[in-house]
Simulated scan of single mutants.
Amino acid sequence: MHVQLLVTHTDSCLPNIKRELDDAGINYCVDYIEENPELVASHNIRHSPNILINGSLIFRDRPSKGELRTFFLG
């Protein structure tokens, strides 16, 4: 599973999301909206944060810790 955080350089939520994914044992990469205009266009992204999984946009906003755990750990 390829988990991609697509955020702005100034997104204040990033440290919390990273910590929650780390705590759940989920591997991820961080990519920045400013450096990936093709992803912004293809997913109609208008804000940050966003989480893509295997290239599909799954979360358009900051998910709660419970939402992340439910999605990834069942």
Results as ranks from 00 to 15, higher is better:
residue 22 D to N: 14
residue 50 N to Q: 01
residue 30 V to T: 12
residue 2 H to D: 13
residue 23 D to K: 13
residue 9 H to F: 09
residue 58 I to W: 15
residue 15 P to D: 10
residue 16 N to V: 03
residue 39 L to R: 14
residue 10 T to C: 06
residue 35 E to A: 01
residue 35 E to H: 05
residue 32 Y to W: 04
residue 26 I to F: 13
residue 65 K to T: 05
residue 10 T to P: 01
residue 59 F to P: 07
residue 54 N to T: 02
residue 19 R to N: 01
residue 8 T to M: 06
residue 10 T to F: 15
residue 57 L to G: 00
residue 10 T to Y: 03
residue 24 A to W: 12
residue 40 V to H: 04
residue 34 E to Y: 06
residue 44 N to A: 13
residue 14 L to P: 08
residue 19 R to Y: 08
residue 53 I to T: 06
residue 8 T to R: 02
residue 32 Y to C: 00
residue 27 N to F: 02
residue 61 D to P: 01
residue 60 R to E: 14
residue 43 H to E: 11
residue 29 C to H: 11
residue 25 G to C: 11
residue 39 L to Q: 15
residue 12 S to H: 09
residue 51 I to H: 00
residue 55 G to L: 13
residue 8 T to F: 01
residue 73 L to W: 04
residue 61 D to L: 02
residue 57 L to I: 06
residue 34 E to T: 12
residue 42 S to W: 06
residue 25 G to H: 07
residue 28 Y to K: 08
residue 67 E to I: 07
residue 13 C to K: 08
residue 20 E to F: 15
residue 49 P to L: 06
residue 43 H to W: 15
residue 37 P to K: 01
residue 57 L to F: 13
residue 33 I to Q: 00
residue 22 D to M: 11
residue 29 C to Y: 00
residue 4 Q to K: 13
residue 71 F to K: 05
residue 58 I to S: 14
residue 20 E to K: 07
residue 58 I to K: 14
residue 42 S to L: 09
residue 59 F to N: 09
residue 45 I to V: 14
residue 61 D to W: 05
residue 60 R to H: 13
residue 10 T to D: 03
residue 47 H to N: 13
residue 71 F to C: 11
residue 8 T to W: 03
residue 1 M to E: 10
